[in-house]
Amino acid sequence: MTDKPIGAIEWRDLTVDDADSVKDFYAQVVGWNTGSVSMGDYDDYTMSLPGSGETIAGVCHARGSNAGLPPQWMMYVRVADADASANRVLELGGEIIQGPRTMAGDIYYMIKDPAGAVLSIFSSTG
């Protein structure tokens, strides 16, 4: 992910049981190009814009760290301090679904707001 301002939506992932067929669905419906990302014993996928090739989303199997997630588009929003924002979630009646997790120098939390909507927040660890 690139460094964007606090509050920016930096990434989107779709988590589904069968990412293989669903990535093809989106490629045919909206024209995205696909690329594979090895997750060990299976592949998840990147989705990129035709023409520029800019990668804008992922389509992921509901396995590994995504096991048990319902089919959904997940947005990832940059915050100043993921730990502090996670504490604020709890203070305001939300829920931490997963986290903290670290990946590529960032710390992540998957949260649920008081209405039940799900979002991921993250910040740099260093």
Rank of each mutant, 00 (worst) to 15 (best):
S48A: 06
A117R: 14
W11C: 08
Y42D: 03
M75K: 01
F25W: 14
L119Q: 03
P100E: 05
D24N: 06
G35S: 12
W32K: 11
E10M: 01
M39F: 06
V59C: 10
S36Y: 14
A62G: 08
R78V: 00
V16S: 04
R63M: 11
Y42G: 01
G126V: 10
V79S: 07
D83A: 05
R101Y: 02
S123M: 02
S85E: 11
V30M: 13
L14N: 05
G51A: 05
D13M: 02
M47C: 12
G58N: 14
V59S: 06
R78P: 01
V16Q: 06
G93A: 04
S124D: 02
I56K: 09
S124Q: 01
E91F: 15
Y45D: 05
E10Q: 00
Q98N: 05
M110R: 15
S120R: 02
P70D: 12
D44M: 09
G40Y: 10
A57T: 15
M110N: 15
S52Y: 07
G31C: 09
S21E: 14
A19V: 10
V77A: 00
V29I: 05
N33R: 15
F122G: 00
E10A: 01
M39N: 06
G53A: 07
K4H: 02
C60F: 11
I9S: 01
G105N: 07
T125F: 06
S36C: 07
E54A: 14
F25T: 14
P100C: 02
